[in-house]
Design a protein around this nucleic acid. Structure first.
Lengths: 210, 210
DNA sequence: CATTTTTTGTTAATCAAATCACATTTACAT
DNA sequence: ATGTAAATGTGATTTGATTAACAAAAAATG
């Protein structure tokens, strides 16, 4: 987006959605401006971390004044492409998949699951929350037709790599997997793992050690 | 656990569950030993990172040989307390909560949701996967009686802080929240956030920028 | 309008994690 | 047995992120 993309730290980008959401909440509550110190208190970050993060996206604040909330929302929204709705596919409509589908990013108008797939004949053909559930075999035409770049997978570990290989072949560039097993993908494809078991074990371990 | 606890880097601890699971899979598949380089290829880490991680837990390998898988599983299992089952509580039995409950860490014998709570009279009194769903008002006696230290929360943002305050009061030390809003807790309580929207937005953002 | 206060943006310092480089140890082959 | 190849564990270095410190800029005040 900005010319010097490459140099924005990963961590600053990771915080962008949080900044965006928090600022939207503040705007909804009627606030017009905010200082880095206040925002820091809300989201538990040092003011200086926030200022540095913001600085990567331009000169957004004014000395002795703070930041204009609407302006920040405008800038961050553009970066996050909140205006252009991103169609997502869901692979795996088990209990978790169904819950995701029913929720379907209701609060986020720019994210939407538009297609769902499974291998179980019992669920194929059904419709959940207006999204039809299709056979995995239909993946190709559909992904390409709908220009889907992002996929959420609740596919279990043993079947995952095979599915992911297909996704990559059909042009998917972003995959969020709820299975812990790492999958092999080309450099250009981004995978993120959301492993509930690891998260919980870690949390308990930290508590244990402290 | 080990005497010099404090010095084990957070990141090394975070990787422990992944190591543990991967090693268990290898053992199940009949492997007896592994070298840091092989393991690195499997879980996409530099061999040297793995060796250093392992070194924090003792002299676990042998030069020119590698690591004994069973031995690693033994050691890491002890640290993760895989033998002592940890009872967890679930707060919020909506679609996501229900999915978690139905799954209930089936694959992990040491984690188990043993109690579930909600405010909705329509679900209170029900039983899902052998776990009874109780009123939030019953929290106190129950958490204390069952010595529950870890909680998974799918409580929506607006109600979260209030619930968390109670949890802390009743002795909970670890909280996994599916809502993005940061909550205030004392130093001694660990909170982890698992915000689906942020994860997906970030993933798409990374793809966008690269 | 000058002065004081506030708050930013950024350079410099610190801290933590990942990686390099290599001496040491052990296995294995001959 | 002895020598060679393989792999570990760890000081030294590099990389990346956070925090501290402060000069410059803008707002608020009298």
């Amino acid at each position: 987006m900005t010319p010097q993309n490459k140099k924005i730290p990963r961590m600053s980008l990771e915080r962008l959605p949080i900044y965006y959401r928090t600022l939207c909440n503040l705007a909804d509550a009627g606030y017009l401006r905010i200082k880095s110190a206040q925002l820091g208190r809300i989201i538990h970050l040092e003011a200086t971390t926030i200022r540095r993060d913001f600085s990567y996206f331009g000169d957004l604040g004014k000395s002795g004044y703070g930041y204009d909330i609407a302006h920040l929302i405008e800038i961050f929204g553009t970066i996050l492409e909140v205006n252009h709705t991103q169609g997502l596919a869901l692979i795996g409509v088990g209990n978790l998949g169904r819950a995701l589908l029913i929720n379907n990013f209701r609060r986020n108008p720019n994210l939407e699951i538009v297609a769902a797939y499974d291998v179980d004949p019992a669920v194929i053909g059904g419709i959940i929350n207006e999204v039809p559930i299709q056979a995995l075999a239909d993946l190709e035409d559909d992904l390409k037709a709908k220009q889907i770049k992002g996929v959420i997978s609740t596919v279990p570990s043993h079947a995952l790599q095979e599915v992911v290989d297909q996704l990559v072949m059909f042009g998917v560039t972003s995959i969020l997997s709820f299975a812990p097993e790492p999958v092999h993908v080309p450099e250009s494809v981004h995978v993120r793992y959301l492993d509930l078991t690891s998260e919980v074990q870690n949390l308990l371990l930290l508590a244990e050690l402290s």
